[in-house]
Design a protein around this nucleic acid. Structure first.
Lengths: 240, 240
DNA sequence: TGCATACCTGTCAGAACTGATAGGTGCGGG
DNA sequence: CCCGCACCTATCAGTTCTGACAGGTATGCA
């Protein structure tokens, strides 16, 4: 990990599968048999809809998703609120539900490791977990600490290189393409401007504003201006 | 940099001056005579108002601020848009204004180094620069690369530990406290429900919904329901 | 040339929201 | 016991938005 060239393969990866393979291999070369990478491309999007790739056991991933463990998982809560790495240890699993989750994870070889939060420039929220089956309290911990800086850096490059995959199509539905004018109208509407005010701002008639707003509502499949603004925010068509 | 204990002094620092001293010393122990740390606590705040501490020459800092070089500086632009480190090299200073800036910085021993972006969980935007007077193209670069992972990690701990200084009451305004009922109304309004529909959902009269909505608007200091929803989202009073 | 698209302008009835009014209950703390 | 607070109800004039009309120009592409 002496050179940035090592990270270039993340950006060079042609396909998402290649990218995942690179990430997993880098994790393994640092001593972690399992890696999980997840990214919520937009600020308010649900964790369930995250771009998530991992080398975890599929059974565990299914269990995790099915039982909504992201609402229990203390490492997720950590990533939402902080920027620093979080070391896994039995201590961080406090509630009975969390203890149960950790026990079951151990069964899949997800026992020791570190979780790194991701916060992107556009409000992206992410999590990277580097995991192995070592004793979290043993002397492997020292080894883990030695590698932590490299993980922090790897995290940043994973994030940048994942954007083209993660933000490409949030959840399969094609997000509507608003015209620049429609976006402008929505933007000012989100900031509390009335049609009349927006008309002044855009130097056009009020009818034009209502016209664009109607088109935007139709494209977003909503009936009110309020809903249109919220949906546009959710889809990342507007910045908060 | 083998242990997290090395970072604990950042959190233990009693005063801002102690904190700065720790940061600067850590930078120096990694081979960087000069360090700059800046943080804009809130998303939309101006760069001019950032929490900024550095061991740069005061004359250079004054020149920088006076001539508004943050609008010229390519490292700032990088931090706004990306998460990855940026190595200083004459290449990144493209425009005449940027070249002039770099030349003058060199005069103050700000010649080679690396800039790391910071993006916090609440939209905080920051920049850390680790700088020395080496030849940016020389073999010192290899040494710099070797230390990069440690800088990435140090960056994260600097950020977390700086929050109590940097965000101590961003602009004095306390966020309004909405009653549960007001939040409920706002929540359904955000999801496109009309007053009549919300009244059905909450099992109360339409007048009550309008009453709560009026109170919420007043507390949020806005005039339309739309604006109230957006502001509540922005303040984290509502989940998208 | 025809066609699609973005952009612009207008009107109008009906629905929804705003801001103000003036009341009511129930609860907990001083 | 009074007071503040959250919560509830109602009315009403005025404003804004919605959804549906029916048009117009300019651009770029087949």
């Amino acid at each position: 990990m002496q050179s940035l060239d090592l990270f270039s393969e993340l950006f060079d990866a042609r396909t998402e599968a290649d990218w995942c393979a690179s990430v997993f291999r880098m994790g393994e070369s640092l001593g972690f048999q399992q890696v999980l990478y997840a990214l919520v491309p937009q600020q308010g999007q649900r964790l369930e809809d995250a771009f998530l790739r991992s080398s975890y056991a599929p059974e565990w991933r299914q269990t995790y998703d099915r039982t909504g463990l992201h609402h229990v998982d203390p490492t997720v809560a950590h990533c939402v609120a902080r920027n620093t790495p979080l070391f896994w240890s039995p201590d961080i699993f406090v509630t009975p539900a969390q203890k149960a989750m950790y026990e079951e994870a151990c069964f899949y070889g997800i026992r020791a490791g570190v979780t790194l939060p991701i916060h992107g420039p556009k409000g992206e929220l992410g999590i990277v977990c580097f995991v192995n089956d070592a004793n979290p309290a043993g002397r492997d911990r020292k080894e883990l600490l030695r590698r932590l800086p490299h993980l922090a850096l790897l995290r940043d490059f994973c994030f940048e290189s994942s954007l083209r995959f993660a933000t490409a199509n949030p959840d399969g539905e094609t997000l509507p393409s608003l015209t620049p004018r429609e976006r402008e109208c929505l933007h000012w509407a989100a900031n509390g401007k009335s049609s009349w005010e927006i008309a002044r701002i855009l130097i056009c008639s009020e009818a034009v504003v209502n016209f664009h707003m109607t088109n935007a509502r139709r494209k977003l499949d909503v009936t009110t201006r309020r809903e249109a603004v919220v949906k546009a925010l959710r889809l990342g068509l507007l910045q908060l």
